[in-house]
Design a protein around this nucleic acid. Structure first.
Lengths: 126, 126
DNA sequence: TATATTGTAATAGTTGTATAGTACAATATA
DNA sequence: TATATTGTACTATACAACTATTACAATATA
């Protein structure tokens, strides 16, 4: 099961964030074939978004053959394995990192400060 | 002068991207106090966006005292430097870092991958 | 079979973003 | 003073994202 997280400030639509996280969950093996996802209603409540928003995300993923839905039963991970190309994964990493750097720097934090804080964070639970 | 770049695919609104880049420029010293920014019309043409979009970005930055505008003359970097108290600064750093980590992790990136990417980013221009 | 649960669909309304166009106000400059 | 340049303001339009609400269809289960 995924620990879904939405970031309202990111500017990225909720339904896209849900899609991304499921895709990455599948790609990284956190979600395995046949596994049931939360129901649209359950996930909507959990993420405090509208039912339609979750539904939209699931629908798109079904079109991509990543999910299989059965009305009355639920939504499941399809058996088409999603392998995210290395380049795509790398560019995603680069994107979120450089976006983060711009924001952090705009607050006056230096590159080193940021890395130091992340290193510090790495050790202990918080 | 800043080399403005807009990324339509990022999902981040144009006016926000403009704001971030100016804030970033100020924070990193690329933009110094008193320096004149491109006129709203010039920047709008350069970025191929509407005049109102640039105007909105400048307006928000003026409210934040980061810019000073004089009608008929232009828009300039203000001389009020945003200094944050040490404790507040530290907790701000912690906040944005841990938020970022949550998001990045949800995409399946490990702590180490992230730090490595940030380190990599540190060296070269991009 | 009856009921609950699941996904689906449709409508209406709100908000944020961006565009296009026009006009005006303040300042600089020829 | 006249003109150009700058920022500002306003209206209208369009679209995407999201919410709220309601209803329906398919399946599971008691």
């Amino acid at each position: 099961m995924i620990d879904f997280k939405l970031d309202p400030k990111s500017g990225i639509p909720f339904y896209r964030q849900i899609i991304d996280q499921i895709r990455y969950g599948v790609a990284t093996g956190k979600l395995s074939v046949g596994e049931q996802l939360p129901t649209v209603r359950a996930l909507a409540v959990e993420l405090k978004v509208n039912l339609n928003t979750v539904s939209k995300a699931y629908r798109e993923l079904e079109i991509q053959d990543i999910l299989e839905t059965q009305q009355g039963t639920g939504t499941f991970i399809g058996n088409v394995q999603v392998s995210i190309p290395m380049e795509e994964r790398q560019s995603k990493l680069e994107n979120i990192c450089s976006e983060f750097l711009v924001i952090a720097s705009s607050y006056g934090f230096t590159h080193d400060e940021i890395i130091r804080e992340l290193e510090r964070n790495k050790g202990g639970k918080r």
